[in-house]
Design a binder for these strands. Structure first.
Lengths: 213, 213
DNA sequence: TCCTTAGATGAAGGAAACTTCAGGTTTGGA
DNA sequence: TCCAAACCTGAAGTTTCCTTCATCTAAGGA
């Protein structure tokens, strides 16, 4: 069968009636809920459908396979994060770096920590081969936004914006991951956010040529 | 069956003869190799045994189930990292902070990047429910070592050592993760390492009371 | 009202692993 | 040499779950 192709991962059918749009949303929501309640291991397509108030067959009309379902769920979340970053980066263009960076960090943190349980649960999904690609793509997009923002800064920089953006991203994800992996993220959240702001502040100050003696 | 208990995750049998020790090592090595070559999805106990030159039954004599096998593999790797951190932390006690921190970072990076492929492949394992716990425990242990080291620093600090250690750990894992998730870790490794050292330097300097104007 | 299309159903097929166990082989001490 | 314990084998049992498809219902224009 030379003509055989791998099954597409895009929806096999797009909802046209209002009825089915609701179904798709319910399925995606049920996926997250099950991920939270039962963990990735116990997440089956049948259970997802059941919780969504639909039948397995219905699920398979909109998602060609289980992997596509998980990818869609992850993509939804990552797109939210990417969008908040895009927004704040465009808002902050031209402002002094000392304003840019805290705004970026606050926006990122607010987005990631709005629902810590969900963010944490999705880390499990993103480690699967395909999820990994999605996370990487999103991260790359976000990096470009940050770079573009940094390039509009009035201060001259002692480093390439790509490097600064990379480090900022590493700090943010590093700290947020550590938080999300801790038993009680909310507890340490304020202190860690505060310290991350401080860390970023001293870093970008050190990267600003004007502070050189 | 009220007496039924969950199967233990510790080895059901400990190797006593040299022959079986070799088998266990071969199995652990085969697990990593398969993880690298085929990915987590295609890793089965049968395939692991096959690659180790043993049979499935043998595998199950030393690992009660697949999960235990993966956990053992992960634990081996995490213990290596933890040990290098412990070592460097104990070596650096009493030295000035400006010496401690670069030493810590260099040791951590060297350990994580000695075999980038393996480190990256194991991230997939650590997202499974049990692996997550192992990573957390190891990280907690390492944190304590870092704190203990910081407490012997001659300089007075403007922050609790726990906070500084936490941030250092977040930076290190954040940067190393970003590297490992990139397509060519080796390529950006020197530059990122350099910049992380710089970041940490300005941070701990800012945390040292002596630099206050 | 009628009919075409969209949407929903869920039992059953089928493939993929995990895990066991009854029986064989090797080792090393007595 | 001999034997008991350690070690190894791998086909088969069992479970679990993904995915399909023949069939049914609902929607909405003509």
């Amino acid at each position: 069968m030379p003509g055989a192709v791998a099954p597409s991962l895009t929806p096999r059918k797009s909802p046209v009636q209002q009825r089915s749009s609701a179904t798709v949303e319910a399925i995606l929501e049920a996926t997250i809920q099950l991920l939270l309640k039962e963990g990735k291991e116990r997440l089956t397509t049948t259970r997802v459908a059941e919780r969504a108030g639909a039948s397995v067959g219905t699920l398979y009309q909109y998602f060609p396979n289980k992997s596509a379902l998980l990818q869609a769920t992850l993509r939804q979340h990552m797109d939210e994060i990417a969008e908040t970053i895009r927004k704040v980066c465009s808002e902050q263009r031209g402002k002094p770096i000392a304003k840019m960076v805290p705004a970026l960090i606050d926006a990122f943190f607010a987005a990631k920590m709005r629902d810590p349980k969900v963010s944490a649960a999705l880390y499990a999904v993103s480690s699967d081969v395909d999820g990994w690609r999605i996370a990487q793509q999103t991260s790359k997009r976000a990096l470009k936004e940050i770079v573009a923002m940094l390039e509009t800064a009035p201060e001259p920089l002692t480093r390439e914006p790509e490097m600064i953006a990379s480090m900022l991203q590493s700090m943010m994800t590093g700290v947020s991951r550590k938080l999300l992996e801790s038993p009680a993220p909310e507890k340490h959240f304020p202190a860690m956010r505060q310290e991350l702001l401080f860390l970023a502040e001293v870093y970008v100050q050190a990267c600003s040529a004007s502070t050189a003696a």
